[in-house]
Write a protein that binds this DNA or RNA. Sequence first.
DNA 1: CTTGACCTTCCAGTAACTGGAACGACTAGG
DNA 2: CCTAGTCGTTCCAGTTACTGGAAGGTCAAG
Lengths: 129, 129
Amino acid sequence: MNIKEASRRTGLPAKTIRYYEDIGLVTPDRDDNGYRSFSDPVLHKLAFVGRGRALGFSINECRSLLELYEDQSRASAEVKTIAAAHLAEVDKRIAEMTEMRDTLAELVDCCKGDERPDCPILYSLAGQD
Amino acid sequence: MNIKEASRRTGLPAKTIRYYEDIGLVTPDRDDNGYRSFSDPVLHKLAFVGRGRALGFSINECRSLLELYEDQSRASAEVKTIAAAHLAEVDKRIAEMTEMRDTLAELVDCCKGDERPDCPILYSLAGQD
DNA sequence: CTTGACCTTCCAGTAACTGGAACGACTAGG
DNA sequence: CCTAGTCGTTCCAGTTACTGGAAGGTCAAG
């Protein structure tokens, strides 16, 4: 299977698949003409990484998870450690963004949005609170 | 005032202040020895950008806001447009992250985290739902 | 006159792609 | 057999917003 079909099946852009090969996440076979040839296991790994990325795992976390997935003697505790750490990160990030959002929403709400220069958003950014 | 003091007063790393000069956000004066010399207005602009960044505005949004701030004849509607668009982005991002978070939390919750290889997190990433 | 804290510039690296150029391979139609 | 069009390849550069580090100049204190 060529890269386009692999792209279609995994939902990953062809560019991204090439990039994943570059950084050693997957190693598709090659046909005699130099074209990449995607076997089912490789396709499977790509989809695995795609799902990991969709859950916000970094490439390196995906790499570790992939290794654990392939290691039949893994302990689920190792996986859980990675995922729990990531979850904590996500929670923190959401909390930060929510705080930001609320401040922002308040400012937007206070701004009349007319043709006059008077603007609480700018005043706040200027530190005139 | 030299860069260190400007850094202390704005809370921005000196490196960042130099970077902001590089990209033309601010233009501090120079002393005869080549050192940057920060006047109050420049300091003020730096603090403005710092607050904008803390609210999640991109550098370019900060640049636009700064221009509007300095334009006495601005219409607050212009500012509101930028801020509201950003707010919508933030809201979208928070929604995405929250969805991610919930899926992740569920998986983490289901994983026993022991020495056995059995792991719902990996199974889910592998697409075995 | 030396030490230490400051300052300068410039180069490179980060994360995870994405766009584009330049060129080769393959297939279908005339 | 030629050609057009779609696919594939590699490689280089750009994105965002910094950050780290090297090499070297400046300044104030003792």
